[in-house]
C-alpha cells in the first residue's frame, strides 16, 4: 500500500490534467487553474520541511561544536532573523530592503561572477584536440568567443558575421533536433508514470 496509493493518486492527477486541459467543457469549469492553486499551496507547505532540515543539520553542528560550527550558527541566525523581519515588515520593508540591496544582491552577483573564472580554467583544462569531434568543438568555440566580442571584427572584418552564421544555422538546427528529442523523451517519462511503469519517485532503486 505504501507505493500503490501514491501511484494511484499520481495516475488520477495525470488524467485530471489531460481532461482539464484538452476537453473544452471541463476547461470552461476552470478546474485546471484550481488544481494549479492546490499545487502551489501544497508546495508552500514543503518549505517547512526545508527549514526543519537546515535547522537539524546546522543545529547539530552547533550543538556538537563540529568544525566550522560558527558558520552554521550564522546561517541559523540569518535564516530565522530575516524570516522574522520580513514577517514583521514584509519583504519590501526598509530594513528588509536594505539587507536585500546591500547583502543579498552583492553576494549573489559575486557567486555568479565566479563563473567567469571557472569558465576560463575549464576552457584551459577541457579544450584539447584529442579527437576530430573535440577539435571541431574547440575551433567553433574560439570562432564564437572572438566573434561575439568586438575584438573579432577588429582583427578580421567579417569574423562576427561568421559567428552569427554558426549560431543561426548549424546551432539552430542542432538545437531544434535536441529539443524535439528532449521534449519527446520527457513526454515518454510522463506516459510511463501515467501507465504506472515509472515508480522511482516513490522511493527505492527500482
Amino acid at each position: 500500500m505504501r507505493k500503490e496509493v501514491p501511484m494511484v493518486l499520481t495516475v488520477l492527477a495525470g488524467l485530471f490534467v489531460i481532461v482539464a486541459k484538452y476537453l473544452h467543457a471541463v476547461d470552461q469549469l476552470g478546474w485546471f487553474t484550481v488544481g494549479n492553486r492546490w499545487f502551489q499551496i501544497v508546495y508552500a507547505m514543503f518549505f517547512l520541511l526545508g527549514v526543519v532540515s537546515l535547522t537539524i543539520v546546522h543545529g547539530k553542528n552547533v550543538q556538537r561544536r563540529r568544525s566550522k560550527w560558527v558558520y552554521s550558527l550564522i546561517l541559523l541566525i540569518c535564516m530565522y532573523g530575516y524570516g522574522i523581519l520580513t514577517l514583521e515588515q514584509t519583504v519590501d520593508g526598509p530594513e528588509a530592503n536594505w539587507i536585500y540591496n546591500n547583502i543579498i544582491v552583492p553576494s549573489d552577483s559575486t557567486v555568479f561572477a565566479l563563473l567567469a573564472f571557472f569558465i576560463t580554467s575549464a576552457a584551459y583544462r577541457a579544450f584539447r584536440i584529442r579527437t576530430r569531434e573535440a577539435t571541431v568543438l574547440m575551433i567553433t568555440s574560439v570562432i564564437l568567443m572572438m566573434g561575439t566580442a568586438p575584438i573579432g571584427d577588429t582583427i578580421i572584418p567579417g569574423w562576427g558575421t561568421l559567428a552569427h552564421w554558426l549560431m543561426d544555422v548549424p546551432n539552430s538546427s542542432a538545437m531544434r533536433g535536441i529539443q524535439i528529442g528532449a521534449y519527446l523523451g520527457g513526454f515518454a517519462v510522463a506516459l510511463r508514470i501515467l501507465f504506472g511503469l515509472e515508480r522511482a519517485h516513490l522511493g527505492g532503486a527500482s
Partner: peptide, 20 residues
C-alpha cells in the same frame, strides 16, 4: 471558488464541439 468565477466569464468556442 476563486478562479472558477474568473474563468467562467471567458467563453470560448470548442473545436469540433469537444476540444479546448
Amino acid at each position: 471558488p476563486f478562479g472558477l468565477s474568473l474563468l467562467a466569464q471567458e467563453e470560448s468556442k470548442a473545436v469540433w464541439g469537444i476540444f479546448t
